[in-house]
Computed example of a mutant assay.
Amino acid sequence: MRRLGELEAEIMDRLWRWQRAATVREIVDDINRTRPLAYTTVLTVADVLYRKGWLIRGKSGRAWTYEPARSREDYTASLMRDALGRTSDRPAALLRFVEHMSPEDVGSLDAALRSLGRQAPDEGTAAGDGPRA
């Protein structure tokens, strides 16, 4: 998966934060609080994101509205899978990643694995075995 461009990410960030459909005018007005940007530029990039499958487009009167087709978490997970897929030694890459995680992130990873019914081998299961009863 290709990382979103700067303006693509800026548009997606707003829509993820707002958690609702928005018009290009709303997005432009919000961006223009920090820097000037033309309406047509945002319209073009929103259309590109729609064609790439990142946005859902609908009509509200005469204006198009846009909302995310995927969550921020889906995007982040896709980037992580892509990065992991670029190495020939996945276990080593995962180890390096986990070594640099905060204790809070390690706890979150452990909770995520448990919610999927998985445990790390040193947590009471042998590799390939299911969780112990």
Rank of each mutant, 00 (worst) to 15 (best):
K52S: 02
A21G: 09
H100A: 02
R81T: 11
L15N: 02
G107A: 11
S115E: 06
M80Y: 00
S102C: 04
G128E: 01
V45A: 01
L116C: 06
N32G: 08
E67P: 05
D47T: 08
S78Q: 05
V48L: 13
S102Q: 10
R132C: 01
L79C: 08
T40M: 11
K52E: 14
N32K: 15
Q119G: 10
G5W: 14
R25A: 10
S60N: 12
S115G: 11
T65L: 12
I11E: 05
R118Q: 05
P91F: 09
I56Y: 10
Y75W: 01
W64G: 00
L49G: 08
S71C: 07
R35L: 09
A46M: 12
A9V: 03
R51C: 04
V98L: 14
N32P: 03
R35E: 01
G61H: 13
R2G: 07
P121K: 00
P91Q: 09
L95W: 11
G58N: 06
G107H: 08
E99P: 00
W64R: 07
A22I: 06
R62M: 01
T65K: 10
E8I: 08
R86K: 05
D129L: 06
T41D: 06
Y50A: 03
L7V: 08
Y50E: 09
D110Q: 11
I11F: 15
R57G: 02
G58A: 12
P121A: 13
V45S: 06
L94N: 02
E67Y: 15
A127W: 02
V98W: 13
A63W: 15
P91C: 08
A83M: 06
S60M: 14
Y50D: 02
R33G: 02
D110R: 14
D82L: 03
I27L: 13
R118D: 00
L49R: 09
T125V: 12
T44D: 13
A112D: 01
S115N: 07
A77Q: 03
D105Q: 11
A93H: 11
Y75A: 07
M101H: 03
I27P: 09
L94E: 13
A22G: 02
D89P: 10
P103Q: 05
S71L: 05
D13R: 12
G53H: 11
L79G: 02
R70E: 09
A77F: 00
R132P: 11
R57W: 01
R33L: 14
S88K: 14
T34D: 01
R81S: 14
Y75P: 04
T41L: 10
E67Q: 15
P121C: 08
A21L: 10
F97N: 00
G128S: 02
I27F: 15
D74C: 10
A69C: 13
